[in-house]
């Protein structure tokens, strides 16, 4: 158990500065979003704001659209690029633990960080919105931002897969379908349109967990 704590400790040391920076960015985006909502409410009048939202659809928190994606990518980069530099991953995989467990714990760390951001940010955003808007609009906002935050999880796993891949050429090839799948999360549709599709997005995320193991296998086979 302590051994896995050590791996988490290593991941924390690598990523802590980036996590703190992104927490500040998220906080800033949240504060700014609410400032803009309040300003729009004052300028338009709340009833016009409500009516516009009902008529045209929910469109809050646009500043958060790509933040979870950015977080996921940065997490993967800060975790795994140092491992591939000078092939340090050899040291990590040489630890007296099953190799798949090592990779799994590293991935679990990244997913946990991303999930923590989601579980803190989303409820806070919706709670803030609920002070000024009825529950239907808050629920609409939830369905609007959910795919963006799920994209963060997917982006982390896909970026991890790419970063852990030992061959540069293969990284470029992996990027193409990876970017394609990430675009599934950003189809530019109305709030709530993703309701029947969320299950598939979650499915992609669960599948993508396996990809990094393939890159690690290729690393162990000596591909370069």
């Amino acid at each position: 158990m302590f051994m896995y704590q050590s791996i988490i400790y290593k991941e924390w040391i690598k990523t802590r500065s980036m996590i703190v920076l992104m927490a500040i960015v998220f906080l800033g985006a949240g504060i700014y979003s609410f400032m803009k909502i309040a300003e729009t409410g004052r300028l338009m009048g709340m009833i016009n704001y409500w009516e516009g939202t009902i008529e045209k659809g929910v469109s809050f928190f646009e500043y958060f659209k790509y933040l979870p994606l950015l977080l996921g990518i940065l997490l993967a980069v800060t975790q795994y690029v140092p491992e591939l530099q000078f092939k340090r991953l050899k040291l990590t995989l040489h630890l007296p633990l099953p190799e798949k467990n090592i990779i799994a714990v590293m991935l679990a760390y990244g997913l946990a960080v991303e999930l923590l951001f989601i579980l803190i940010t989303v409820p806070l955003l919706l709670l803030g919105l609920s002070f000024g808007f009825p529950r239907e609009i808050v629920w609409g906002a939830f369905w609007l931002i959910l795919p963006w935050f799920l994209a963060g999880l997917a982006a982390y796993l896909i970026a991890s897969w790419i970063c852990l891949e030992p061959q540069w050429k293969q990284r470029v090839l992996d990027f193409i379908p990876g970017a394609g799948v990430i675009s599934f999360f950003f189809m530019g549709v109305k709030a709530g349109a993703y309701q029947p599709f969320v299950i598939y997005l979650v499915g992609f995320i669960l599948l993508a967990f396996a990809f990094s193991f393939y890159s690690a296998i290729r690393f162990k086979e000596g591909k370069s």
Partner: peptide, 30 residues
């Protein structure tokens, strides 16, 4: 693997650690 000490070419280590951190990191494995 625990019985094998490995030194990679170039004395590669986790250089984002400091002296104390790297000892703390490895100590739990052995």
């Amino acid at each position: 693997k625990g019985r094998i000490g490995l030194l990679l070419e170039g004395h590669i280590q986790h250089s984002y650690f400091n002296v104390r951190q790297i000892e703390r990191y490895y100590s739990r494995f052995f």
